[in-house]
Amino acid sequence: MENRLFGRDIVSISDLSRDDIESIIKQAATLKELGAGPYLSGKLIASCFFEASTRTRLSFEAAVQTLGGRLIGFSDSETTSAKKGEKLSDSIRMIAAYADAILLRHPHEGAARMAAEVAETPVINCGDGANQHPTQTLLDLFSIAECQGRLDGLNIALVGDLKYGRTVHSLALALAHFKPHLHFVAPDALRMPSYIENALADGGVSFEYQDSLEDVVPKVDVLYLTRVQKERLDPTEYMHVASKYVLTVDGLCNAQPHLRVMHPLPRVDEIHPAVDTTEHAYYFEQAKNGLYVRQALLSLVMNESLE
């Protein structure tokens, strides 16, 4: 089968078609089951993290190493020429001349798009400010497909900070390819932005707001929780919200047996630790899947054929 991801930049989840997403999920499942192959043998990958990251950087670098590739790079901008005032576009042109692909995290929104346009080598966006983090969305989609056996027509609840959370924005838009029914549970101050609601409506996705976790748990296949940051709400409202959107074992008593709980991590208080040992908890498996999805993406972008 033709590999349409070969040589491509991975900047935004909206650049990926349903076919692209499915081929990444399929490859991730293969790598998870059979183990990594030498898909990056002889390749040099530049890991350019202009701001700190734990999970994303380590899982990407682990993916490169386990696929037999070699790494150059840095893990914060303090040790780079950016500190001397060098423009990102100049840095990227130089790095592109050294490496076969660039993994880029940068605090400015649109940095990855700009880098992709100036670099001749593929650029993979590892997070550009509050804009995009496509591999987080891909690992979410892979985890949903893995735990539910399908992506089409699922009932999925997105809970918590739906206003500022780029994770839930990208996930909702990517799910639009698979005609889900979405349930939003969020305080009034943190509802989905209208441009996301409009895009979902334009894509024919049905969605509704629910008042509480209690209302939504019996109805859904996937419960996707996110962290509500204290600074987003006034203290009284935060106290109210914090108690209303915490998932406990009791809160899952009306759940369907196949319901799985997901969270992009790090979690703070949204999920009680006792939930971790229930059959519904899937967030640690989800985080683990970050490695397989990043391996899958790198193997597809860097190889014309995977035969």
Binding site: L88, H106, H108, E109, G110, R113, M114, E117, G129
Partner: peptide, 12 residues
């Protein structure tokens, strides 16, 4: 209008 957009910080 987004002050954190890369176009506000780079010669693009």
């Amino acid at each position: 209008p987004n002050a954190n957009c890369v176009t506000r910080h780079d010669s693009v």
